[in-house]
């Protein structure tokens, strides 16, 4: 019986190990990272995964080995460690040191992502203005692009429900807003997640490195329709982006005649 338990423990550890090895090929892992900041996030993720993985295998391996050894020896109490000062110092210092190390290595990515003075600067040396406003409300996303006057919140704003269209391969600053409750702007492919509080402007930035369509999700439980609060980020080359704005401008000035067809 003990031998069986020991084998199951070991098999479980191997199963977990196997799942991590095959995850990327089977689509079980996170989606491909397509943002500059995501590299550092994935690096942190990998570091934490290694730490957790090594200790997981160590613990489960030891456990299986002890159970297995006891099974061979016919049971009974072999030995017990008690009040072992050196051992206690080791198991306090080692995890503590690992936590401090993680705290130190995450500072740089966090600063690059979240600090207000990390917002990319334009040619004039000043922080880039927001490309558009993203308004979250129960239960969808609305994007407002400033119109010809370059200001948001005026009559010539261009309205894009559901779809956030951004130019690829350049830093993009977004101004996030909520109309009602707390939402969270989450683009898994950019490794970007930011809470949005009602009544407050929150800036985020990213640089998408691959043209394509990516999921935009709400990552804060915001009400009964939270699960369907989805949107899309479409990253396209600059020229196509200009054409998109042009199409939106045409829609804004529509006289409705196309609806008569």
């Amino acid at each position: 019986m003990r031998a069986l338990v020991a084998t199951l423990f070991a098999a479980f550890a191997l199963l977990v190990l196997w799942s991590f090895v095959v995850a990327p090929q089977r689509g079980w892992a996170m989606p491909e990272n397509v943002a500059t900041l995501g590299v550092a996030v994935d690096g942190l993720f990998a570091k934490i995964q290694w730490v957790v993985g090594v200790f997981f295998l160590l613990t489960v391996g030891l456990l299986s080995w002890i159970v297995w050894r006891n099974a061979q020896g016919g049971g009974g109490r072999r030995s017990a460690v008690s009040k072992h000062t050196k051992l206690e110092i080791v198991w306090t210092i080692v995890p503590g040191a690992i936590l401090v190390w993680l705290a130190l290595v995450q500072i740089a990515p966090w600063e690059a992502m979240k600090f207000s003075n990390s917002i990319p600067r334009g040619a004039d040396g000043r922080p880039k203005p927001a490309l558009c406003e993203v308004w979250a409300s129960q239960f969808d996303w609305h994007v407002l692009y400033p119109g010809a006057d370059g200001r948001s919140g005026t009559g010539d704003d261009l309205h894009s429900p559901y779809e956030l269209v951004v130019p690829v391969n350049e830093p993009v600053v977004l101004s996030l807003h909520s109309r009602d409750v707390i939402h969270s702007f989450f683009v898994p492919s950019f490794r970007l997640k930011q809470d949005i509080l009602p009544g407050r402007e929150t800036l985020v930035w990213f640089e998408c490195t691959k043209a394509g369509e990516y999921d935009l999700l709400c990552a804060e439980l915001c009400g009964f329709g939270h699960y369907k609060m989805a949107g899309k980020v479409r990253a396209i080359p600059r020229a196509e982006y200009a054409a998109f704005l042009e199409r939106k401008t045409r829609e804004l000035h529509s006289n409705g005649m196309e609806d008569r067809k």
């Binding site: 409300s137 969808d140 429900p161 559901y162 329709g225 369907k228 899309k232 609806d259």
Partner: peptide, 24 residues
């Protein structure tokens, strides 16, 4: 409504209400 009115409303949602965009 025309068919297009309903389809566009589904795409746009009714902003300011709990009717979300169904562009997905």
């Amino acid at each position: 409504p025309r068919r297009e009115d309903l389809v566009e409303l589904l795409e746009r949602g009714v902003y300011g209400t709990a009717m979300p965009s169904f562009a997905r």
